[in-house]
C-alpha cells in the first residue's frame, strides 16, 4: 500500500481544468500498466485519487491526465515539474486490445474518457498491421475542451480514422456538431469483426452501447470502462462495489454483457 515516489517530469495543460502529467520514477518504478488500468495518485498531505493511465513511455514515465474537480485533483493539476507525488498500482482490468487483432477496432470516447482509451489506441497503432480498420470517434463538450487535440493528426497519419464531434461549436469550428452516437450512425462498421471500446460518462456509454448493438455489433465484443469510488485499489475497502463486483479489481474495463444489468439498476 506504500506509494512509489514519482517526480513530475512534464506538465501539459490540455484544457482549462485538465492537465496531463509525465511522471518519472524517483526510485523503484511500479509495474508497466496495461492500457485501461489505473493508478492511485497521492498528493502528499492532501489525499489520494484513482486516475486512469493515459500512456507510458519507454523510460518508465507514466502519462496521467487529471481533471481538477476536487481538492486532491486540484493539487495534482497544480503540480509543477520537479514536484514529487506518490503512485500506487497499476490496478484493475485493461482493454485487452490484442483480442481485437485480426479485425476492426472501434474506440468511442466521450470527454476525458479519451484519456484511458489513448493507450489502447497507441498500442493498436504500434502494431498497425495486426488490425484491419482502427477508428476513433470522439465526443467533446466544445473544441476547447478536447483533450489530446494536438495528437489527432499524428493518429491519423499512423493509420487511424479519427472523427470528432462537439456538443457546442465555437466561432470558427467547421467540424461535426452533435452527439458521438451520431458519428457512429455514419461510421463504416463491419459488425462481425469489430471490437468496440467505449469510455466516457456512464450515460454516454449506455447510449453508445445501444447504438453499437443497433449496428449489430455483438454485445460480447463491446467493452466499457466503469468508474466508481476507488479507494484502496486492492479490493479490500469495498468503496467501489458495483453489485457483485469490486471495480478496482474486476474493472474498470468490463464487457458490456456483464455491465449492462448493473448499469440498469438505480442507485448502484
Amino acid at each position: 500500500m506504500a506509494p512509489a515516489w514519482y517526480r513530475v517530469a512534464t506538465r501539459h495543460r490540455e484544457t482549462h481544468d485538465t492537465v496531463t502529467l509525465g511522471l518519472g520514477p524517483v526510485g523503484q518504478a511500479i509495474a508497466t500498466p496495461e492500457p485501461g488500468q489505473f493508478t492511485m495518485l497521492y498528493a502528499f498531505g492532501i489525499g489520494e485519487v484513482p486516475v486512469s493511465v493515459s500512456g507510458t513511455t519507454g523510460d518508465a514515465v507514466l502519462v496521467q491526465t487529471i481533471r481538477a474537480v476536487g481538492a486532491v485533483t486540484r493539487a495534482l493539476c497544480a503540480a509543477e515539474p520537479g514536484q514529487v507525488i506518490g503512485v500506487r498500482g497499476p490496478y484493475g482490468t485493461g482493454w485487452d486490445v490484442t483480442r481485437a487483432a485480426g479485425g476492426d477496432l472501434l474506440l468511442v470516447a466521450g470527454g476525458i474518457g479519451l484519456a484511458p482509451l489513448r493507450p489502447a489506441l497507441l498500442a493498436a497503432l504500434s502494431t498497425r498491421s495486426a488490425y484491419s480498420r482502427i477508428s476513433m470517434l470522439i465526443g467533446a463538450r466544445s473544441p476547447e475542451e478536447l483533450v489530446f487535440a494536438a495528437e489527432v493528426d499524428g493518429w491519423r497519419r499512423s493509420g487511424a480514422e479519427v472523427d470528432i464531434t462537439v456538443d457546442r461549436a465555437a466561432d470558427g469550428w467547421h467540424g461535426h456538431v452533435g452527439v458521438v452516437t451520431q458519428l457512429l450512425d455514419r461510421a463504416d462498421v463491419s459488425p462481425g469483426q469489430t471490437t468496440a471500446l467505449v469510455c466516457g460518462p456512464e450515460v454516454m456509454m449506455r447510449l453508445t452501447a445501444r447504438a453499437l448493438l443497433a449496428r449489430e455489433i455483438p454485445a460480447g465484443q463491446i467493452r466499457i470502462s466503469l468508474e466508481r469510488n476507488m479507494r484502496c485499489g486492492i479490493a479490500e475497502c469495498g468503496h467501489c462495489q458495483l453489485g457483485p463486483r469490486l471495480l478496482c479489481r474486476d474493472g474498470p474495463v468490463v464487457s458490456y454483457p456483464d455491465a449492462a444489468p448493473l448499469m440498469a439498476v438505480r442507485e448502484l
Binding site: 489525499g47 485519487v49 481533471r67 474537480v69 485533483t73 463538450r141 456538443d167 452516437t181 466516457g200
Partner: peptide, 18 residues
C-alpha cells in the same frame, strides 16, 4: 436532449474520482 445533459461537464466539485 443528450447534449442538454452536458455530460462532459465536470460532474461533482466535491469528488475527486476519475
Amino acid at each position: 436532449r443528450v447534449r442538454l445533459l452536458d455530460l462532459y461537464a465536470a460532474a461533482d466539485q466535491s469528488g475527486d474520482a476519475q
